[in-house]
Design a protein around this nucleic acid. Structure first.
Lengths: 242, 242
DNA sequence: CAGTGGTCTAGACCACTTC
DNA sequence: AAGTGGTCTAGACCACTGC
């Protein structure tokens, strides 16, 4: 009888947990429809309203997408309007940002202690390091370093990346069954060093936005580190506060 | 019979609109409890569940705060944990940021066309301009210019600001019945000019985060412009992406 | 027309706060 | 014990999609 510590957990939370487990277990894949509310209600032996509340919250977290008349779908970075869901950079003009990708480096190495800690690995664990430049209107405006745990992204090569057109998160999804759910960014202002100046074709000492991102999958596991530098001469980082 | 354009509006949306209207009309003030779900259900002649859904969404937007057993309250910037709800700056150390305020300027003038446009005024309309510096651990790290429409903030003086201890948004709330609901920020990297270098006690040419904010009240009306510069040597702008 | 999600209701009961 | 929000149910009906 001793219901210990966590004093009380509503039914819909348990349903949420079970749906989440199915997502983690890849029982339903990104883009797929999950079973209807009625089916899930039967499966979990609860009322439709309870399933509904569970799905509502998962949809609010952007893990699921509801489409009236059609069903409820697993969120995917492949979708049109999801393409650059985590990108907050925006031209000052208000136009839509269209980025052109160029991958420069993709090599395997050993992680230093900083990256290892962020990815919850041990220092020295094998890691993939990618460099890329992104251009807008012919001008390079983003230089980005990416670190991935080699275990989850075995066999990744520069050629695969350059063959891919579209967002990197869609690539991870389709090639490595890894769906990014959320991310945390830490932003600073820095000065361009020689290397950055070269890649972004700007003078040394130009101000740049430094954006360090950790991205997470379903189980809240960090699986990607990014360190981007944005040239914000003609664009800005856009943020809504609620 | 001609239900025109907006084809369909659920009941709870209409309830939301009516609650919002009461908030705008200051029928319930920040910090106050609004009537119970049952009372509202009677008032609007709908079921409790419908009122509930309306309140749920307003609470999700941080306009209302639910407290089990106590009631539902109008959100306020006076609350402990709401003090710096819109401030995303955070020490790299992970400690809690404790800012010390110093107001430098508070003067009335005429708005230029840029500020006027953002505040939806006419160029030349009277406007209040405030400068301040904020320090952490004895070091000045934020320089901020603030613009307010003179109409809504009549009689604001430098002395009033310096007499106030606490967040500016709590001040607006208690002195000018103006509650901020959301804000939009545009962030860039810039270099410190002579003036900024002086205020932040850093070398000219140091990299700074430029943060331009527009803050809105209930009716989606912009009522405050801020242009802040953050020294991000030992702190960063923290952002969560979902 | 059948199937999906979306809205609305009415009622029971639980958890938390206050008196 | 009374009052608040929180959970759960069962059932009716509406809106949208696709066959």
């Amino acid at each position: 009888m001793s219901e210990p510590i966590a004093s009380f957990s509503p039914l819909y939370e348990q349903i949420k947990a079970m749906i989440l487990a199915s997502l983690q277990a890849a029982e339903w894949l990104p883009g797929d429809a999950i079973p209807s509310e009625m089916e899930l209600a039967v499966r979990y032996a609860v009322s439709q309203g309870t399933v509904r509340k569970a799905i509502d919250e998962l949809a609010a977290q952007n893990l699921l997408v509801r489409r009236q008349g059609k069903g409820t779908f697993v969120a995917t970075h492949q979708e049109e309007d999801w393409q650059y869901r985590f990108l907050r950079l925006e031209p000052d003009s208000g136009e839509k940002l269209q980025l052109k990708n160029q991958f420069l480096v993709c090599e395997c190495g050993k992680s230093d202690s900083h990256i290892a800690q962020l990815l919850k690995l041990k220092a020295g664990d094998p890691i993939i390091r990618i460099d890329r430049v992104q251009s807008y209107a012919g001008k390079p405006i983003v230089f980005e370093e990416i670190w991935l745990p080699e275990g989850r992204f075995k066999g990744l090569t520069l050629d695969m990346l350059n063959a891919w057109s579209g967002p990197v998160y869609a690539f991870y999804e389709s090639e490595y069954a890894t769906h990014m759910v959320r991310a945390e960014e830490q932003i600073k202002a820095v000065l361009a060093d020689e290397n950055l100046a070269l890649h972004l074709q700007i003078p040394i000492g130009s101000p740049l936005l430094s954006v360090e991102r950790v991205a997470f999958t379903y189980d809240n596991k960090p699986v990607e580190i990014r360190h981007a530098r944005y040239d914000t001469s003609d664009q800005h980082y856009d943020n809504k506060l609620n």
